[in-house]
Design a protein around this nucleic acid. Structure first.
Length: 335
DNA sequence: GATCCACAGGAATCCTCGGGGT
DNA sequence: ACCCCGAGGATTCCTGTGGATC
């Protein structure tokens, strides 16, 4: 049934992308100076809801660029994982193999930066994904000032990034090229799924009607859509079906949605997970009650202040939202 | 209007960890 | 073996906010 499982994986970057022509050409136009050797491109900033293809298009475009430019370095950095200044800079240096003898996390602050500045190799394109998760936004300033380095920033909402920047940084990044991604509509999702099915599954395993059902459940999110297709395929294989029926699709939906959700929650600490669980168990819990319940569930609870830090973090991750101010603020799970 | 309460969040400080230097 | 250093997380301390109550 499966001819190529790789194309169903979330991290797969297709060689050609559909329905994002405008975005792709906008981004490659921005990067054009690299190919034509006409100086330094403006940084780009891709924004849009989850599963709208931002990461995919960024990586795809850089890959395309590499086909035209022989000498080009590039690196993809997920700022959720590399949230601290050190981690981000380390990952960036890693892309140009400058990290060999850096082990210490306590390498003097400017050591990493000095190395980056000293870089005189080919043009270097750095994709910073989930840039709103950067703890210390100053690193953007440092990277922006690095010669021969071009930034592609990715975030869900522009204001998540810009509202945390100081004046100096904001005015610097004001000039970057904004590329906004909307949600995929139904027919676009179907086309994406059709490609994946064509590349990865035997013919006739799923028909257009089935693809449309999947697209419907995905609500504009391509990651969810592909996740449903992947789970449905797995289920069909395990149960010796030779095609993916509507029942199979329906069963695959909750799991696929849970997978996407889990991706975010498994990056939380134990304490953060418990707090998140408590919030999902109540619709609209108050801070005090939340803390009381949290204390009953763990052996060594963190302080209330720390929990408040967690709450802002969870809110930033879009897992919860808060309602009301100061007194009587309530926390809800994001559905 | 004064006071209290429950909470938010900034700033300073403490604690811990991992690796380097001696 | 020992101390030192810097980073990052947690805690402590504190000020601010806005509704409730007297």
């Amino acid at each position: 049934m499966i001819t190529n499982a790789r194309v169903l994986q979330p991290e797969f970057i297709p060689g050609e992308v559909k329905h994002r022509d405008a975005e792709v050409s906008h981004l490659s136009d921005t990067l054009r100076p690299i190919a034509t050797n006409e100086g330094h491109p403006t940084p780009s900033f891709l924004t849009g809801p989850p599963g709208a293809g931002k990461t995919c298009i960024a990586r795809h475009t850089v890959t395309q660029l590499r086909e035209n430019v022989v000498d080009l370095n590039h690196q993809y950095v997920n700022c959720w994982e590399k949230y601290s200044r050190f981690k981000t800079l380390y990952a960036v240096l890693d892309g140009i193999n400058e990290t060999l003898d850096i082990h210490r996390q306590s390498t003097p602050r400017d050591e990493l930066l000095d190395r980056l500045r000293a870089y005189d190799g080919p043009h270097y394109v750095v994709i910073l994904d989930e840039v709103d998760q950067l703890q210390d936004k100053d690193v953007l300033y440092d990277l922006h000032r690095t010669p021969n380095l071009t930034l592609i920033l990715i975030a869900n909402r522009e204001e998540d990034v810009f509202s945390f920047l100081d004046e100096r940084l904001r005015s610097r990044l004001q000039s970057c090229v904004r590329i906004k991604f909307g949600q995929y509509n139904l027919s676009e999702l179907v086309a994406i799924l059709r490609d994946r099915a064509q590349w990865g599954l035997e013919p006739g395993v799923i028909d257009d009607d089935g693809l449309e059902k999947i697209a419907n459940h995905a609500a504009g999110d391509a990651r969810v859509a592909i996740g449903i297709l992947r789970n449905a395929t797995q289920f069909a294989v395990q149960n010796d079906h030779d095609e993916i029926t509507n029942d199979v699709i329906r069963n695959a939906v909750p799991e696929a949605i849970a997978e996407v959700q889990q991706e975010t929650t498994e990056r939380l600490t134990d304490d953060q997970q418990i707090i998140y669980e408590i919030i999902t168990g109540h619709d609209g819990i108050r801070s005090g009650d939340l803390y009381d319940e949290y204390c009953t569930r763990v052996k060594n609870p963190k302080t209330q202040r720390t929990m408040r830090n967690y709450l802002t973090k969870l809110e930033q991750y879009d897992l919860i939202r808060s309602e009301g101010n100061t007194k009587d603020r309530r926390y809800h799970p994001v559905t």
